[in-house]
Structure formats: C-alpha cells, structure tokens
Amino acid sequence: MSELASQKIPVTVLTGYLGAGKTTLLNRILSENHGKKYAVIVNEFGEIGIDNDLIIGADEEVFEMNNGCVCCTVRGDLVRILDGLMKRKGKFDAIIVETTGLADPAPVAQTFFVDEDVQKNARLDAVVTVADAKWLSDRLKDAPEAKNQIAFADVIVLNKTDLVSKAELAEVEARIRAINPYARLHRTERCQVALSDVLDRGAFDLDRILDLEPDFLEAGDHHDHDHHHDHDHGHSHGGLKHYHDEDMQSLSLRSDRPLDVNKFMPWLQNLLATDGQKILRSKGILAFSDDDDRYVFQGVHMMLEGDHQRPWKADEPRHSRLVFIGRELPEQAIRDGFAGCITT
C-alpha cells in the first residue's frame, strides 16, 4: 500500500436488509477489546442502542453529479460529515458508515471516487453486507435493495445460521453465489465473526487486488464447506448447488494471451459509459502486450480507477482476468468486445 493510502482513514460501509443484524455487528465491532476508536455514522432513523463517543446521524441524502451521468449519485451528507470529522483527526482510527436496510451502497462508494476532499482524507475499505440466513432468499425475490447489497458486497456476513437447517443454508448460500461469487462469505450466529474478517480488508485498494477467483473455489478456514453431493439438482460447482439469478449476475472473463492496451482501454471505457448503470462493480487484473507490469482496475458503475500495480513475477502466468457484477449484463456483447482486445 502506498504511504499516502495508509495515512487515510479507512471507512467500512455496513449494509444489510432490515433486521439482518447490522446493529449487532456494529455493537460487536465497537465493544470488542481492540484498542481502536471508531467514528460511527448511522442513519438518523436507524436502530438505537449504540454505545460510542463519536456517533453521527446521517440523512442518506443522495444527489446527482452535474456531469450528465445519471448513475453518478453521491451521498452529500457523507461529504459534509467526513469533512466535519476531519477536524477531529486523531480522535478516531477508522469510520464505519451504517446504511439503512433499504439503501443502495453505490452512492456511498461513489462518494469516495468523485469527491476530492473525501479522497484526500479517507479511503473506502470495504462494503460489508449482513444477510439473514432465514429470510434472505425471500428478500432476494421481493426486494431489489437486498439484491443490490449482496451484489455490491466485498464481505458477506451470513447471519442467524442457527435458525436454518443445513439444506436451507446451502440454498441461501447458492443464491448469494449466483449473484456475487467473489465476496468473502462468513457464516455466523449473532454476527460472531473475527473483526479482521470485516475490517481493514482493503477491498478498494488497487494494491491489494491479488486474484479474482470466486470465493468458494478457494481453500480457506473462513469457510467450512458443507459439501452437497446432490447431483439431481442440475449442475454443481465445488460441491455447492448452482443457481442462475435471472436479474443480477456476475460475468468473468479471462485471457491467457496479452491484451492490446490501445484496444482494451477504449473498449472498457465505452462499456462502462454505455452499460455502467447496469454494472455495479467491476475489477480486473490485466496483462498488456509490451508491458511488464500487472495493470489493475476497479470500478463502481461508470466510475473507474486503474493503475500499474507491480511487475509480473517471473514464475507468474501473465493472465488477464476481469469480473463484472451487474444487472441484466449484455453477456455476449461483453464477451465479444473483450475477445476483440486480445492480441493474436
């Protein structure tokens, strides 16, 4: 991480549908003995019962940027609150923004992309979504907000797992994975999750984009696989049931041959300019021809940032990998466009 980035105050966005357990997680973060002080920004009409010195009520006011881009919405109240909080630098180590259950995380994230002052002082660390194991499957059907929150997440805390059977748990996990296979998923009861799993994730830090493998393909102690050898249910992935969400999907692209930077960049920019409203998140690790550096990028809707990350290691295959999560993605057009950027 660059020196400058490390001095910026990390901001964790805590989201989740009504009643999933956001406040429980927030109180755990605040009460645990970690020696850190948090400034907490909560919605004015949110749940009460948070014990913290620095707690600020927000209005969740969203406004459209005057740049002709309809999805470039930012949280004006957040700009104001972060500006005010910076007067108390040194009084806290990190900031947590709790959104309402009905909030779209995009304007919060976009605030960190477009506001000069916010960028100078703070960095978005991760979007953490708390999901209710018992009710999420239903909400994914009837509440677009719940789907947005899952699609947008870097970390998903699948809570209240004690209230469902193993089969129900596998079901809800599969539904989450149909939307967002890349988020880190933690199964919890009463939000009992290691705080290191939700805080200081660096999910928006270009330097920390390491790989873009789906979370469930990774071996990791954060995830106790409940293998599900039920091959009657269509196809399966890594032992998990596989769903296709008809509305929100992820799309992964890869190439073992290097990309032509002069074709790829205009294609990506054009894609986000035309379909950015549908594309919630995008990320990529890219190998360009005649370039010995890994190039990484990430985007939120139409907003994009990218940079050379580091030289490719000698033993590292120079593969390019891109991931899009979005609504009604024009899959074939994206695949064709990407194919046109690969050097022959």
Binding site: F63, M65, N66, V74, V79
Partner: peptide, 11 residues
C-alpha cells in the same frame, strides 16, 4: 444585486 454560490463541483 447578486447572489453567488460555491458548488460541489468545481464551479
């Protein structure tokens, strides 16, 4: 005679 505001964007 005039009222001027500073805006969130540079204007």
């Amino acid at each position: 005679k005039f009222l001027v505001t500073t805006m969130h964007e540079p204007a």
